[in-house]
Simulated scan of single mutants.
Amino acid sequence: MLAPQRQQAILQLVRQYGGVRVIELVRAFGVSDITIRRDLDSLAGRGLVAKVRGGATLVRSTGAGSTDEPGFAVKSVRQEREKRAIARRAAALVQPGSTVGLSAGTTTWALAHHLAAVPGLTVVTNSVRVADVFRRPSDDRTVVLVGGVRTPSDALVGPVAVAAIRRLNLDVLFLGVHGMTVRAGFTTPNMMEAETDRALVEAAERLVVPADHTKWGTVGISTIASLSEADILVSDSALPPSAREALTGHVGRLVIAS
């Protein structure tokens, strides 16, 4: 396949899924990492894609509103390093034998990979992607995937999900969020997902929010919970001092993952 043909195929994948990862393109096209990165450089230079760490996404329009909801593929290639650090730190908060809730999101998905090694867990999630992390059978682990309507971020939401969650009790919930501010709290661009996430919050004894620094100042249309409802917020070292000060005054404890 010639470079122009491969680049056109890559562009079609970006448009179809909202984003692509270099490692996946290397496998798909059977070429080197360097070749794929050159292809992405060429596409980005023509304004057709936006390069991010580890891949590329659709070019984001300016002034995205509070209902703008990127797909999982788009979000998975944003702030990868920060999400990995947050996931490692958040995983240390989980005790073996716990009942753990994981809402949908790329940070909770990263966290799930660390929790796969924790013995005796019962995992409750409304995320298809998170459930897939635990697909390998384990004698000492139970995974509960609630039903519902699937969103662009691969969350299962709606009345079926809410009804199932309200019958459960969780030791801790790790809540993925789209944005957070003092006024709006933790928010999402999907109103049905907000309702499902609120049910998860109500079912949990303790709420932990793993959120990278880009979530600060972003507001989705629907509030899931106020900042004060979070027992712990785990973010990364790029979180600005003003945000740290504001969050420290509202959440139970702010943890910075290095």
Rank of each mutant, 00 (worst) to 15 (best):
A3S: 13
R6N: 10
Q7T: 06
Q8Y: 01
I10M: 12
L11S: 07
Q12H: 11
Y17L: 06
V20P: 07
V22Q: 07
E24W: 09
E24L: 14
L25S: 09
R27I: 09
R27N: 12
A28F: 11
F29V: 13
V31D: 10
I34F: 06
R38N: 10
L40E: 03
D41V: 01
R46D: 12
A50L: 08
R53C: 09
R53E: 14
T57V: 15
L58H: 08
L58Q: 13
R60Y: 10
A64H: 08
G65L: 08
S66K: 11
S66R: 14
S66P: 14
T67D: 14
P70Q: 11
S76N: 13
R78V: 15
E80Q: 15
R81D: 15
R84D: 14
R84M: 13
A90E: 09
A91Q: 04
Q95M: 11
T99W: 02
T99E: 06
G101R: 05
G101T: 14
G105V: 11
T106Y: 11
T107M: 07
T108P: 00
L111N: 03
A112H: 06
H113R: 15
A117V: 07
P119K: 08
L121S: 05
L121D: 04
L121P: 00
V124I: 15
V124S: 05
T125I: 05
D132K: 05
F134E: 08
F134Q: 10
S138T: 09
V143A: 08
V144H: 08
V144D: 00
L145F: 03
R150A: 12
S153F: 00
S153L: 14
A155W: 00
A155C: 03
L156F: 04
L156K: 03
G158I: 01
V162W: 00
I165T: 00
R167K: 02
R167L: 00
L168Y: 00
L170D: 02
V172P: 00
F174G: 00
L175A: 09
R183G: 00
G185R: 02
N190S: 13
N190M: 06
M191A: 12
M191E: 13
L200A: 03
R206V: 10
A211F: 10
W216C: 10
T223K: 11
T223P: 05
I224D: 05
A225E: 07
S226N: 06
S226Q: 11
L227K: 04
D231C: 02
S235H: 05
S235P: 01
D236S: 05
A238Y: 08
P240F: 04
P241D: 14
S242M: 08
A243L: 03
A246M: 13
H250W: 01
R253K: 11
R253E: 15
R253G: 01
I256Q: 04
S258D: 15
